[in-house]
């Protein structure tokens, strides 16, 4: 079976490809939080030419900005975002890791003011060797990225 046939092509929208297998559902949850009406097609555990198995998500009618994509950065920094118009890829970029996460995650410190006030939470990203840490702009605590992942699915 050709890989491109695994999930049906879309006319206009965004295809997030090369998501590490297992992270697709986390990304799905993020997208649904941003827009619960988003029209989605999901492929899980598809064969990948480069990395064994991968997940893929197609979002119809919504062209992701780099900021939209940054929402998913912790789960799949190396995933590729393809912007599709008239069934063609018109723009392609890697999700990457942003310098800052704004209004995306709650602060793991339950006594942090950012969890109780209307202004968005804010974390600065610090990379140390292979590990990622997020430092809360408000309570000034630093947390490992794993603390922001859903515990189990």
């Amino acid at each position: 079976m050709r890989e491109t046939m695994a999930v049906e092509a879309i006319e206009v929208g965004t295809v997030i490809d090369h998501i590490p297998a297992g992270q697709g559902l986390n990304i799905l949850a993020r997208i649904q939080k941003l827009n619960s009406n988003a029209r989605l097609t999901v492929g899980l555990n598809l064969p990948s030419k480069t990395s064994g198995l991968k997940d893929i998500i197609k979002v119809e009618g919504w062209l992701f900005s780099e900021q939209d994509a940054a929402e998913m950065a912790l789960y799949a920094p190396n995933a590729t975002v393809n912007i599709i118009e008239k069934y063609k890829v018109v723009k392609k970029f890697k999700i990457g890791i942003p310098e800052e996460f704004l209004g995306i995650f709650d602060c793991p410190n339950s006594n942090c003011i950012s969890n109780k006030e209307p202004s968005p939470t804010r974390f600065r990203v610090k990379a140390k060797q292979k590990d990622l840490f997020l430092r809360c702009h408000y309570c000034e605590r630093t947390f490992a990225d794993t603390l922001f992942m859903p515990k189990s699915r």
Binding site: C107, N109, N111, C112, I113, K116, S119, Y138, C139, R141
Partner: peptide, 23 residues
């Protein structure tokens, strides 16, 4: 009593904020 309260206040306030302890 909450951590980060003074930082938040400094962003809202139009006058200087001096932190006397945030959590």
């Amino acid at each position: 009593p909450q951590e980060g309260s003074a930082r938040l206040a400094s962003e809202v306030s139009t006058v200087p904020v001096i932190n006397g302890g945030d959590g």
